[in-house]
Design a protein around this nucleic acid. Structure first.
Lengths: 192, 192, 192, 192
DNA sequence: TGATAATCGAGACGGTACGTCGTGTCTTTCA
DNA sequence: TGAAAGACACGACGTACCGTCTCGATTATCA
C-alpha cells in the first residue's frame, strides 16, 4: 500500500480536473483511465495507485468540487414551501440539462455496480448536499409545520426520489411546473 | 436488414434464456455478448443481427418473461391502502434481494446510458408493470378517495421513486415496515 | 487453439514483413509486438493468436525468407578449400556487418532464453543453411580428402563456432584474412 | 557523477550478491533491477548511481567472484593434450549444467545487445579466465609442439568456439567424450 | 422437388482499453 | 549529506471484448 505522505499533490489535482473535464466533454462512456492519464500528463499507474477505478476518481473529483464551496443554509422565512422551492427547482433544472447531469449519471451507474461505491456516494456527496434541506425540514418540524413523527430522511426521499425516477426513465418532463407540483405534493404528505 | 420470417426461433430463445441466466449468475458487469453467444451455442453475429447490444437483449428477455404472465388486476375492496399494500411490499422485497433486482440494476444502467433505451424500458416494461397500480388509483379517484386533480402518473412516481432512490443509494433499509410507511405517506399526499 | 484454415494470409505476410523491416531499422531491443502490429496494420491479438512471442515471429520471418530461395549446392571442383572459401568469407562478411547480422543477433538472444526456441532455430534455419557445407564435406570425405572417421556436424561446428564466438565477444577482426585463416586451420584438423 | 570515496561498501556487496543469487534462482529473464534492489535492501537509485544496468551489475558480480580466487596456472607435464583435457572437460561440464551456465547465458545475451558490454566481458572475464590456456599453449609452441606461426588467441577460439556454438544452439550433446574429441580435433589443427 | 438464397454456428479480424510490470528519474525522509 | 524508500512518467506487456467480416453447413421457401 502506498505512502500517502509522499503523494504528488500536483498529479492528484491534474487527475481530478482531467476526469471532470472529460466527463463533461465526452460523457461517462468515453471516460477511460487512459484518457484521464493522457490528459493529466500522468502515468496510468499513478491513478491505479490511489484509486480503484474511474468511478472512484469521479467521486473524489466531485467531492472535492463540492467541498470547495460549503453550501449556505437555506433561508428560514417561516414559509417552508417558499424556502424549498428554489432548491427543488434547481435540482430539477440540473437533471434536465444533459451536460450538468452527466456527473449524476456517472455516479448512479457506478453506484448500481458496486455496493460500497453506493455507500461512498451517499455519505460523501448526497448527505452533505441534501443536508441543508434536512435542516430546513427539521426547523419546520420544530415549528409545528410538519407532523411531529416525520422521518426527515424519508421526507427528503419523498422529494428527491420521484424526480430521479422521472429523470432516469424519462417518464415525464422536468420543468419548473413539475418541480413546484412535486414540492406541493410532498409537503401535503408531511404536513400535519 | 434481415428477414424476420426466416429467423431461428430456437436461437432467439436460447439467447434470451442465456442472457437472463448469466445476469443472475454473474451480474451485469460480466454479461458480455461473447458469453451470451457461447452459452446459447450461437454465433455472435446472430445476436448482432437482431439486437443492438446487450442492453437490448436483456430488455427483450425481460419483456418476454413479463409478457408470459399478464399481471392480474389489483383487487378493489374499496380500501385503497389495503389493496396497494401487497404490491408495494412485493416491489420493495424484490429490490431488497440482490438476485431478483439484478435485472432492474442492469436496465437502469442501460437506461442511464442511452436515451432511447430508457424510453424502451419505460414503454415496454415499466408502464405495463405499473399499469395495475394506475388502474386501482384511477378507480379510487373516481370513488372520491383521491383528489380529483391527482395526476396518476405522478402519483405512481411518488410511490415508486423514493424506494428506487433508497435502493440505488442505500439510504435506508428496504423492509416491510418501510413499504407500509411509504405507502402511508404517499397516500397522505394524494387523498382529499 | 485457432483454426489455421481460416487464417488470413494477408495478415501473416504483413506481420512477417513488418518484423523484418523493424528489426533492420531499429534493432532487436526496439522490436516490440505493438510496433509490429502497428506497422502491419493488424491487431495485437492476431499476432498472439499465431505466435508465442516476438522471437517466434522473427524465426518464422527468417525461415520464410530463407525458404524462398533454396541455396544452390556448393561446387565440387575437387579442391575442398577453394570450394568452401567463398561461403566462409560470406558468413564472416555477414557477421561483420551490424545490419545484416541483426537477425542472427536476435535469434541468438532468443535461443539463449528458450530451450525449445534454440531447437527451432537449429532445425529450421541453421541445419538447412549449413546443409550445403555438410554435403561438400561429405563428398570430400568420400573422396578421401578428409579423415574417414570425421564427424561432419562436428566439422561444421569447428568452422562456424570460432567465428560466432569472435563475433559475439569481439575477440578479433572479422575480415577475409580471418575467414581464410580459419578455414585453413579447420581443414588442417580434418584432413587425413 | 558520484563520489566513489563515499560509496557504501556494504551496499555494493549486497547488490552483487543479490544479483548472483537471483540469477541462479530464477534465471536472467526474471533478474530485474527492482528485484535486485529489493533483495539487497537497497534503493534502486543506489544501483543506477554506480552501474548502467543489470548487465553491468552481473558482470561486476562475476568479475568479483572470479577475482577472489586467481586461477592457478595449468600444469606443464610436457603432454599438452593431457594438461588441457581437464580444463576443457570442466568448461563443457559447466555449460552442460543449466544452473552453472546461467551466468554465461546472461553475459552472452548482454554482449549481443551492447558492443561496449561485449568488450567488457572479453577484457574482464574471458581473457583472464582463458589466460591459463593461452599460457600453456605458448609454452607448447615454444617447446615446438605447435606450429611456430600459431596464433594463440585463434587457437583458443578454435577450442572454445565450437562448444559455445553447440551449447547455444543445442546441436549436440555436451559430454566428456565430446570434450575429448574436440580437444583432439583442435590440437590436430595446431600441431606441426 | 431441387435450386437458391438467407440464416446459422463458428471464429478470425482490426481495434480499444484494461490492469500490471519494469524502466530510469526525481523527491522525500531519516541516520 | 548520502542512502533507503518509493512515487513518478513512460511504454510494453498479454488479455478481454468489441462489432465486423468471412466461411462452409444447414434450412426453408419458391421455381
Amino acid at each position: 500500500m502506498p505512502n500517502a505522505a509522499r503523494r504528488s499533490e500536483r498529479s492528484r489535482q491534474a487527475i481530478l480536473e482531467s476526469a471532470l473535464a472529460l466527463l463533461h466533454e465526452s460523457g461517462y462512456a468515453d471516460l477511460t483511465i487512459e484518457a484521464i492519464a493522457a490528459r493529466a500528463g500522468v502515468g496510468k499507474q499513478t491513478i491505479y495507485r490511489w484509486w480503484s477505478g474511474r468511478g472512484a476518481v469521479v467521486l473524489d473529483a466531485l467531492v472535492e468540487q463540492a467541498g470547495a464551496s460549503e453550501p449556505p443554509p437555506l433561508p428560514d422565512t417561516g414559509d417552508l414551501e417558499a424556502d424549498l422551492r428554489p432548491v427543488i427547482r434547481a435540482i430539477v433544472a440540473e437533471l434536465a440539462d444533459p451536460r450538468l447531469s452527466a456527473t449524476t449519471r456517472a455516479l448512479t451507474v457506478e453506484a448500481l455496480t458496486s455496493e460500497t461505491f453506493a455507500e461512498q456516494v451517499r455519505d460523501r456527496l448526497l448527505r452533505p448536499q441534501l443536508g441543508t434541506i434536512v435542516a430546513r425540514l427539521r426547523s419546520a418540524r420544530e415549528a409545528g409545520d410538519l407532523r411531529a413523527d416525520a422521518d426527515l430522511d424519508q421526507a427528503v426521499e419523498l422529494l428527491i426520489g420521484p424526480m430521479y425516477h422521472r429523470w432516469m426513465l424519462r417518464t415525464g418532463p422536468l420543468t419548473e411546473e413539475y418541480a413546484d407540483g412535486l414540492l406541493d405534493l410532498a409537503l401535503a404528505a408531511l404536513r400535519r
